[in-house]
Design a protein around this nucleic acid. Structure first.
Length: 574
RNA sequence: UGUCCGAUGGUGUAACUGGCAACACGACUGACUCUGGAUCAGUAGAGUCCAGGUUCGAGCCCUGGUCGGACAACCA
């Protein structure tokens, strides 16, 4: 108990003197000036058109974390203003993922579509102020008239319509009198603005499409720019945190707030997360799923939250990662090894240890009594002695890892070799006496050893020093399991970096998934989906949802840190 | 050719707002270890994109460049 307490305190330690990121600096400045009554209210505003990924996790941790830090609140709001892309499937997955990450929006679950009526009224207000007009120009022409980044745009012929005519037309747009694409409502700002977004941006478009929440109630839908800031305003959001690409939108965001004379949240932009060896855009992730390069959004190789969850990540490790990478405005690419570090750091503390052999070779202890079985004590978690011991069966015939034996070991190899001794973890010291090979292939089929009965772990004589300790499972007791070995999805640090004429798909790592059959200690037969273990000396593994009592399936979450350069690796020429 | 934003070890983030560039990851030593894990101790690695200027003093301020990113969906 005492131990657990101290861990909790460490994790939730409130008064930290860590340096503030630039957003928190701004917020503390606002609090000091009693802006908005020193209130802090943020929101996480996903569009329900796809699954959340690790980049969203950064934003979630920032928004919810900031609110928590300053005793404020954070809303979950679905930015559902484009019915053709959105679906409740995504709404559900997003809510699940945010909760799984450990955040709670309480009763503050909102949808932009909740505000459609209010937004319509805002549009009316702009029309009445002469700040918005209905344009009959078609999409191509509007685009052409917008000009370029260096050339000013051309004003629409409809720009100076009367308020009455605009009101009439806008009402009739809502009433469904016009087909898709025939008219739009535009803000009347400045067609010559150096900021393209201010060149009379579109506020409403006609879309005779059912919306996942409002059904067929509406056939005109607000654009992002006309919805987002106003939704923030309605909810009393004080700090509207978003990614860098919206920086150019801020003048427009503020224009609407000013013209509408409503509560003014502050938009603050930060740099989105990029990770090596993966892609992060929804479009590309969707492509991977649709083209079958991965097995769905929750494929353990995907950077999606559900993929990471299935892979065996813990919410804590992701939150800690988000904390560690910091928040700034410059573009960044984080090395996945940092994510893996955060994962191992967390798993090391909480994962139960288990013995499992992935690439088995039989080992026979010649002088061990035939038919005898011992139940040996194994430590559940050396990082937390409170988790106690478990029994592991030991017998004459075992499986050990093929890599743990070498006929002709290089100098720094201190595992098993002819004539050498090693410790079998939690069991005896054994000595290799001989090997049996397949006469045809020359592969080793059996390793014969003798054991020293005085050296069982815990015995007085067990302190004898031997160089290596290897893991094992008892052949007759072992449980067969499918093990899915995952590696990076792409073989390039930056998958977008491609040869001419090829796209990121060409950089997929053909070895990103290998399925093998291994053996685990018997206790794991009862493990349930999501259970996490450290297979000693190998890595962290979790039970996949595909797993059944007939067929156990484990995912390799991440390997143990490998600080030992395998001689065979070094020996590879080139 | 426009507007906006950014630039600090290999990667990311700091630097008490002008005072000898720090922390984490990664790398490398060594100790310890019944996991070549963990833990512990330590080392190397940037003089802050460039050129000027202000100042006793500049990564922080000013000027001019360079490089990178964003912006011309009836997407968000």
């Amino acid at each position: 108990m005492g131990n657990a307490d101290s861990v909790d305190k460490k994790e939730e330690g409130v008064p930290e003197n860590k340096p503030l990121n630039f957003i928190h600096q701004m917020i503390e400045e606002d609090i000091k000036n009693n802006k908005n009554g020193a209130r802090v209210h943020t929101r996480f505003p996903p569009e329900p058109n796809g699954y959340l990924h690790i980049g969203h996790a950064k934003s979630i941790c920032l928004n919810f974390g900031t609110a928590a830090k300053y005793n404020g609140m954070c809303n979950l709001r679905f930015d559902d203003t484009n019915p053709v892309k959105e679906d409740t499937e995504y709404v559900d997955s997003i809510m699940e993922d945010v909760h799984w990450l450990g955040f709670d929006w309480g009763d503050r679950l909102y949808y932009a579509s909740d505000y459609f009526e209010q937004l319509f009224e805002y549009a009316v207000k702009l029309i009445k102020k002469g700040k918005a007009y209905v344009d009959d120009t078609n999409a191509e022409e509007i685009s052409a008239h917008r000009g370029t980044v260096t050339q000013p745009g051309v004003e629409s012929a409809n720009r100076n319509r009367s308020v009455d005519e605009n009101m009439d037309l806008f009402q009739r747009m809502r009433a469904g009198e016009f087909p898709d694409g025939s008219r739009v409502l535009r803000a009347r700002i400045d067609m010559a603005s150096p900021n393209m977004l201010l060149r009379d941006p579109i506020l409403y478009r006609i879309l005779h499409t059912d919306h996942h929440r409002t059904g067929d109630k509406w056939c005109i839908y607000p654009m992002y720019d006309f919805a987002h800031g106003q939704c923030d305003s309605i909810e009393g959001i004080t700090h509207s945190i978003c990614t860098l690409e919206f920086e150019v939108h801020r003048p427009l965001y503020e224009w609407f707030i000013r013209e509408l004379e409503i509560f003014a949240p502050q938009q603050i932009e930060f740099a989105r997360l990029n990770l090596t060896y993966t892609v992060m855009s929804k479009r590309k992730l969707l492509g991977l799923v649709k083209e079958g390069y991965v097995n769905g959004w929750d494929d353990p190789r995907m950077p999606t939250i559900c993929g990471l969850r299935r892979r065996g990540f813990t919410p804590e490790s992701i939150r800690n990662f988000a904390e560690t990478i910091g928040v700034a405005k410059r573009d960044n690419v984080i090395d996945v090894s940092l994510l893996e570090f955060c994962l191992r750091e967390d798993l090391n503390k909480r994962a139960r240890r288990a013995l499992a052999v992935l690439n088995p070779v039989k080992l026979i202890i010649d002088n061990y009594p035939e038919g005898q079985t011992e139940e040996l004590d194994a430590v559940n978690n050396p990082e937390n002695p409170d988790e106690g011991l478990r029994k592991v069966p030991f017998s004459k015939e075992l499986y050990i890892e093929r890599e743990d034996f070498m006929e002709e070991p290089p100098s720094k190899y201190f595992r098993l070799a002819p004539g050498r001794e090693v410790r079998l973890k939690y069991a005896y010291i054994i000595k290799c006496e001989s090997v049996v090979k397949d006469p045809e292939t020359g592969n080793i089929t059996e390793i014969h050893c003798t054991y020293d009965p005085e050296t069982r772990s815990g015995m007085p004589m067990s302190n004898r020093k031997v160089k290596g300790t290897i893991h094992w499972v008892s052949a007759q007791h072992a449980v067969k399991a499918e093990i899915r070995l995952y590696d990076r999805l792409f073989s390039m640090e930056n998958p977008e970096e491609t040869e001419e004429g090829k796209d990121f798909i060409s950089n997929l790592n053909p070895e990103s998934l290998k399925k093998i059959t291994g053996f685990t200690e018997p206790l794991l037969a009862t493990a349930k989906a999501g259970d996490k273990f450290q297979f000693e000396r190998i890595g962290y593994f979790c039970v996949d949802p595909d797993s059944t009592t007939d067929k156990l399936v484990f995912n390799r979450t991440v390997t143990l840190k490998e600080s030992w350069n395998r001689p065979d690796k070094a020996a590879i020429p080139g």
